[in-house]
Simulated scan of single mutants.
Amino acid sequence: MNTDDAPRTGAWQHTWRLTVAAVVSVPVWLSTLALMRSRYGEPGHWVLVGDPLVALACLTVLRWRRRWPLAVALTVAVASGVSALATGAALLALCSVATRRRPGKIGAVVVAYVAASQLAHWIYPVQGSAETLWWVQVVVPALTAGIAVAAGMAVGARRVEVRSLRARAESAEREQSARAAQARALERNRIAREMHDVLAHRISLVAMQAGVLDHRGDLSAEENRVLVRGIADGAHQALEELREVLGVLRADAARPEPPQPSLDRVPDLVADARASGLDVRFTSTVTAAPPDGVGRTCYRIVQEALTNAAKHAPGAVVRVTIEGAAGGTLDVGVRNGPAPRGAARPPASGFGLLGLGERVAVAGGELGHRPTSDGGYLLTARLPWPDGPAHRHERGA
């Protein structure tokens, strides 16, 4: 509901409740007026003037029943003893107190209402009232009060239920918003990892080849052409891979994603690094294909390690070892020697190893990286390899 409409709705509900309380009291007042006329001829000024004024005052006081429920209910209940038109106001006040479901306060107002009803028999001595049994004069107001209390407690229970449902709905909405925010954050991290994996490796190789052209003045024309061709090919491949990633992000959910690189693509990765001028020594004792998730994580580990070696240690020897078997673990190690002296150190972002750590954690593995004693760097990873049907690689290393 619109917040601007809330005060208007509350005022309307207050008005119609007061109207119902006044309408309920009219038959009581008219019957009292008729009985007084039948016995005394004239009902008197109190019945015609005083009674309506007291009822009007009670209806006015009911405006503050939610702020001071007990005080207002007791006041109106006592006033109903001298005003037949205030009967509806007293029942409404009793109902309002009952909505809070406080037995002590409800009992106090009921006692005050029943006691005030006995006072009414002295103020309005209608015909036949003296012959009425005393317990009847007590039971009838008590039953009336009981109906008002039951109605009020039902309304109170309904309000509690509505508040509980509203709180649950708000809690569910907050949880849904939190899950949506978490999903967006995870998706942003996934996109960042994919973009880094796609671009960092290719751009690092292109930068390394460009650095060779810049620092080597003794290269032959053929060697220069090879390096320039390698830079062009690397840039083209980077654009193609970027286009594939963007296509996956923009593709319809029903469209299948292109196959992701796995362990069998590591030799191609090593070959690309060698073609770019990186001295890579590759050793693998794995003869079976691991699960797709494990193989893809292994590929990304080697890719990130070669990227870092090309950036931070161009010209150093890089040794890549992969070993493991089904039912155990897949161990990956990439070690590079120290960077040549005088080589410019590129700025380190740290996002590559951060994303790699997230990948390895998702796969349930362990990642380690540290400088070596000779000034190089070592990156290791251990990935769980669940036991299952194994098949040999179709491609050799």
Rank of each mutant, 00 (worst) to 15 (best):
T372V: 08
L383N: 07
G365S: 08
Q182H: 13
D264Q: 14
S83M: 04
H196M: 09
A289P: 01
S38R: 11
I147P: 02
D292V: 13
A154V: 14
L35A: 15
T329Q: 07
A154F: 04
Q118H: 12
V228H: 02
V26Q: 05
E131C: 06
A390E: 07
C95T: 15
G342W: 09
V162R: 15
G81I: 07
V245M: 11
R37M: 04
V360D: 02
A325I: 01
L239R: 11
G376Q: 03
E187A: 15
P256R: 07
D264C: 13
S96C: 09
A192T: 06
G396A: 11
H369L: 09
G375C: 05
G50H: 02
A145H: 06
P290Q: 01
A55C: 05
A157I: 02
E323F: 01
H391L: 06
L119T: 05
G293L: 03
A181M: 13
V212R: 15
R202L: 02
V26T: 09
T307R: 13
G357M: 01
L263Y: 11
I147R: 02
I147T: 13
E173T: 10
S171E: 13
R281F: 08
R179H: 10
L205W: 08
P291Q: 05
L246D: 03
G277I: 05
R67F: 08
V47L: 12
W12D: 07
A167G: 11
H312I: 06
R274N: 00
H14W: 09
R159H: 06
L30Q: 14
R229S: 10
F282P: 01
T99R: 12
S177Y: 04
S117K: 06
V226D: 06
A145R: 11
G328H: 12
A22H: 05
R335K: 11
I106H: 05
A207N: 14
A339T: 14
V212H: 11
A313P: 06
V110W: 05
G333H: 01
G217V: 02
A157S: 03
P141H: 02
A271R: 10
E394T: 10
P346F: 07
N336F: 04
V294T: 11
G146P: 12
D233K: 06
P346M: 04
T132P: 01
I231C: 04
L219Y: 12
P389F: 12
R255C: 14
R184T: 13
A55E: 00
I231M: 15
Y299I: 10
L165S: 05
S83I: 08
P141G: 01
S220K: 03
L306Y: 07
R8M: 10
Q118G: 09
V160F: 00
Q260Y: 10
